[in-house]
């Protein structure tokens, strides 16, 4: 007994250091192969977006023989991706600003004001996280018909805001509860009210959670298909998801153009992710891990 314990104790100390570089080699090889499987479809699409149609279907791994940048021009102008890009950008921006503003106001009083009824309000909001989008589609369609809300960005953005509020309030409330109270007390002594505290203390301190929720909200709205599909019919008002889906119908043979369009749609998302990797990952897991 005694000897085995001793052996185990000393083993890692002598073994780990000199072998460090070589012992990782299988790990690197394994990960590289796996990462290749994950990324190759994307690389393939990028390369295909610069090829001609016939080259796409004959040259699977090589670089394009000549780089056809005009595929992008054609997707942007003829495929109207530029138009849909601006539509999506507008919708997402308004949604993020409105969603963050309304949710942070709500989360602020729930987290910082002591009142029993606010606890019930909190649970009322959080219950909304259980609602799947499919279970509200039909009444929304009914609303759209009777109030003529189809092809109306305010309605669509309102739907995104309503859908985003439960998760935003849930995560923001958790964050704001953990903030120190000293600064707040200083404002109260100076005679400031709720609004002053919210604007001067809570909002600046909540920047990290606002960023996380903003990025997450932006991504999910940028990627949404079903709500846009149901409530935006006019093709000049389509979002990127709709434009992309109909791209195949319009130009059945232009695969290079389709690839260029796919890349154009995802470039902003990938850039956002690469620069703000931690925020994106935290946003996706913060609610899950706490709940």
């Amino acid at each position: 007994m005694q000897t085995t314990t001793l052996k185990m104790q000393s083993a890692p100390r002598t073994r780990v250091k000199p072998m460090r570089n070589w012992s990782r080699l299988p790990l690197y090889v394994c990960l590289t192969i796996l990462a290749f499987v994950f990324i190759y479809p994307l690389i393939y699409t990028i390369l295909a977006s610069f090829k001609t149609n016939s080259e796409i279907f004959s040259n699977y791994f090589g670089l394009p023989s000549t780089w056809h940048f005009e595929n992008y021009a054609s997707a942007w102008v003829k495929g109207k991706i530029g138009n849909y890009f601006l539509n999506s950008l507008f919708i997402c921006t308004v949604f993020v600003v409105a969603g963050l503003f309304f949710s942070s106001m709500g989360a602020y009083v729930i987290a910082r004001v002591k009142a029993k009824w606010l606890v019930s309000v909190f649970y009322f909001f959080v219950a909304g996280m259980m609602i799947p989008v499919h279970s509200i589609l039909i009444p929304l369609a009914q609303m759209a018909v009777s109030f003529k809300l189809s092809d109306n960005y305010s309605f669509l953005i309102g739907l995104y805001v309503a859908g985003g509020i439960p998760y935003m309030i849930f995560v923001m409330t958790g964050f704001m509860r953990s903030l120190p109270t000293e600064l707040e007390e200083a404002v109260i002594i100076d005679g400031g009210g709720l609004w002053t505290i919210y604007r001067k203390v809570l909002l600046p301190l909540s920047r990290p959670v606002l960023a996380t929720m903003g990025i997450l909200g932006f991504l999910s709205t940028w990627n949404d298909l079903i709500l846009a599909l149901l409530f935006i019919k006019k093709s000049s008002m389509w979002t990127l998801s709709l434009g992309l889906m109909n791209f195949t119908g319009l130009f059945t043979t232009d695969y290079a153009g389709l690839c260029a369009a796919i890349i154009l749609v995802n470039i902003p998302i990938i850039i956002v992710y690469l620069f703000l990797q931690e925020y994106v990952e935290k946003g996706l897991t913060s609610g899950a891990v706490k709940g």
């Binding site: 990324i39 994307l42 990627n223 298909l225 990127l240």
Partner: peptide, 9 residues
């Protein structure tokens, strides 16, 4: 990477 890309694309 695939997580953040849209299901449509």
């Amino acid at each position: 990477m695939p997580v953040i890309m849209s299901a449509t694309s």
